[in-house]
């Protein structure tokens, strides 16, 4: 395959970090998962160029890495926002109007499921029951949980995070 086919339209990524991580894993069997996890930790997501680099350095097919990355929900191929807004779509929340909550977030932030705002501040994710059914409908922003939501309350939460760095 030629370089042209591999070329990607993502911003220039400094691969020094990925190289340093991979240095630890070359010649190690079963190194793929931990290496990818560390790369994600470092960049906040898995940039495409690091996939090609990992393929080359660990001598694994790019396709195989892509298979792993799409199989596990923990990996992200797109940059993610600083604040991850998890909207619970579980049964209890659904009944109590999770749809409206999601719509509000989409309206205010312009992002639906698995989408990220252009300023990389927010990523929305629709998830299954997060175990706080008693407070349905529920959202989580990073580690904070917000329950018994109304449209107005959602706005307050959003404003709070928008005001933060």
């Amino acid at each position: 395959m030629t370089e042209a086919a591999e070329q990607v339209t993502e911003p220039d990524i400094d691969l020094t970090g990925a190289n340093a991580i991979l240095d630890k894993y070359v010649d190690m069997h079963g190194a793929l998962m931990p290496a990818l996890q560390e790369i994600q930790e470092f960049y906040g997501y898995i940039p495409e160029s690091t996939v090609h680099l990992t393929a080359e350095r660990l001598n694994v097919y790019t396709s195989q890495i892509y298979g792993v990355l799409t199989f596990y929900a923990q990996f992200h191929l797109q940059p993610r926002g600083k604040y991850i807004v998890r909207v619970c779509m579980g049964t209890a929340c659904h009944v109590k109007g999770a749809g409206r909550i999601a719509d509000t977030i989409k309206d205010r932030l312009g992002v639906g499921h698995a989408e990220t705002t252009d300023d990389l501040k927010f990523t929305a994710e629709y998830v299954a029951c997060i175990g706080a059914c008693g407070m349905a409908p529920v959202i989580m922003v990073n580690d904070g949980t917000y329950g018994s939501l109304t449209v107005q309350k959602v706005d307050e939460v959003i404003e709070k995070y928008q005001a933060m760095e």
């Binding site: 086919a5 393929a55 097919y61 396709s63 195989q64 892509y66 298979g67």
Partner: peptide, 29 residues
């Protein structure tokens, strides 16, 4: 993989979404 040693394809995604794709689900190259 086994015979050609090129490794174009992989199973991607999970469940109903599972399908065969190339890296980044692009055209074959």
């Amino acid at each position: 993989d086994e015979i050609v040693g090129y490794g174009s394809y992989s199973f991607i995604n999970r469940g109903f979404e599972t399908k065969i794709a190339t890296a980044f689900d692009r055209g074959l190259d």
